[in-house]
């Protein structure tokens, strides 16, 4: 049996376990995703979408259940191994761009490669320039990252998420802060990358019309999921 790209088995998450403020946010979630899938996650705010995304992205550990990435049980990995796996196979796009202000757009895109190698070199820069070109920011490549419009910043963030050629890109409300034109551009760009390189995209969005252009919509309600 070929390994699934991503498999969640009865994933649960409890915040502040054992304390009065204990909150059970995710309840025994089962989910399987394959390479090349382009998935929307929808649901009311506070339903646990970001929590789910953070667990898939190895930023957070589940309180119960198992998460497999390409057959690898991530519960068996220590922090350093998780960090490495995260760096290699997962790209993030957050709602508020989250670019590092001390660097230019191009440098922000280079960063994940520099983190991986330990130092920058010519190939990092060439690869980053290529991605900057692909997201249509050639002209502003050397501008400070936070001196750009929201749409441009989010395209930089997308280029950064793609620079390590991850199998999975996790986007938490990537267009939530953009006007509809920019939102459309960014979404189209993600779809294009998905078709060309079979990168699996998991996109949290409140935008029903964008979600409907995805292969699959997963509804999260009160920590339970419903496939559509």
């Amino acid at each position: 049996m070929a390994d699934h790209l991503l498999r969640l088995e009865r994933i649960g998450k409890v915040y502040h376990a054992g304390e009065p403020s204990q909150a059970e946010v995710l309840h025994a979630i089962d989910l399987t995703l394959e390479a090349g899938e382009f998935v929307a996650i929808m649901g009311p705010s506070g339903s646990g979408k970001s929590t789910l995304l953070n667990i898939i992205g190895l930023l957070d550990r589940p309180s119960s259940g198992k998460l497999f990435i390409q057959g690898q049980d991530t519960g068996q990995l220590d922090d350093a191994a998780l960090t490495r796996l995260r760096g290699e196979s997962i790209g993030f796009v957050f709602q508020y761009h989250h670019l590092i202000a001390a660097f230019t757009a191009l440098e922000n895109v280079m960063l994940p490669m520099v983190v991986d190698r330990g130092f920058p070199d010519l190939t990092c820069e060439a690869r980053a320039r290529d991605l900057i070109d692909r997201v249509g920011l050639t002209k502003v490549a050397d501008h400070p990252a936070t001196d750009m419009s929201g749409g441009q910043q989010q395209r930089v963030a997308l280029a950064r998420a793609l620079v390590m050629t991850p199998q999975i890109v996790l986007a938490d409300e990537p267009t939530g802060n953009l006007d509809s034109k920019s939102a459309d551009d960014v979404f189209a760009l993600m779809r294009e990358v998905n078709t060309k390189s079979r990168t699996c995209f998991i996109i949290v969005t409140h935008n029903r019309s964008l979600a409907e252009r995805c292969d699959r919509i997963i509804e999260v309600v009160d920590g339970h999921i419903r496939n559509t």
Binding site: G57, L59, D79, A80, T83, R84, R86, G87, E88, F92, H98, I100, A101, A102, L111, P112, V115, D116, R160, M164
Partner: peptide, 16 residues
């Protein structure tokens, strides 16, 4: 702390 979080998300180790 936000930048540190981003760096960590993109694979920066605790040691780094």
């Amino acid at each position: 702390s936000k930048e540190i979080g981003i760096l960590r998300a993109m694979g920066t180790t605790r040691g780094q």
